[in-house]
């Protein structure tokens, strides 16, 4: 398969929104050609024949280790909430979720 065309500015903004990032016009304008240049370099990988090659997710392959299912102490409530931008009682406060 061939590498897709690099994204235009509107697409960069759409992708950023998927990542929950809002970019200013200046940021999007600067980023669009930078991404195009990087993706043009990355297109080199098209030259490589990867037929029948398995993917590597981790280089040193260990099976996910299992431990006994016993409860043990974790981070206590006060320390877990100490960095919260907003605390409500014993929980994290968040802005309105449903309009």
């Amino acid at each position: 398969m061939t590498t897709p065309k690099p994204p235009v500015q509107a697409e960069v903004l759409r992708i950023a929104a998927l990542a929950r990032l809002v970019l200013s016009d200046a940021e999007a304008e600067a980023m669009t050609p930078e991404l195009a240049e990087i993706l043009a370099h990355v297109a080199k990988l098209e030259e490589v024949d990867v037929t029948g090659v398995e993917a590597t997710a981790h280089a040193v392959g260990f099976a996910t280790p299992l431990r006994d299912d016993v409860s043990r102490p974790g981070l206590d409530l006060e320390r877990a909430l100490a960095n919260a931008p907003e605390r409500i009682g014993d929980g994290f406060g968040v802005p309105k979720i449903l309009e």
């Binding site: 398969m1 897709p4 490589v48 990867v50 090659v53 590597t56 280089a59």
Partner: peptide, 16 residues
Amino acid sequence: GYYEAYYDRAQKVRTL
């Protein structure tokens, strides 16, 4: 739409 062209291919080249 882009996963196979980029990420999946990169993981295979990683094997090589």
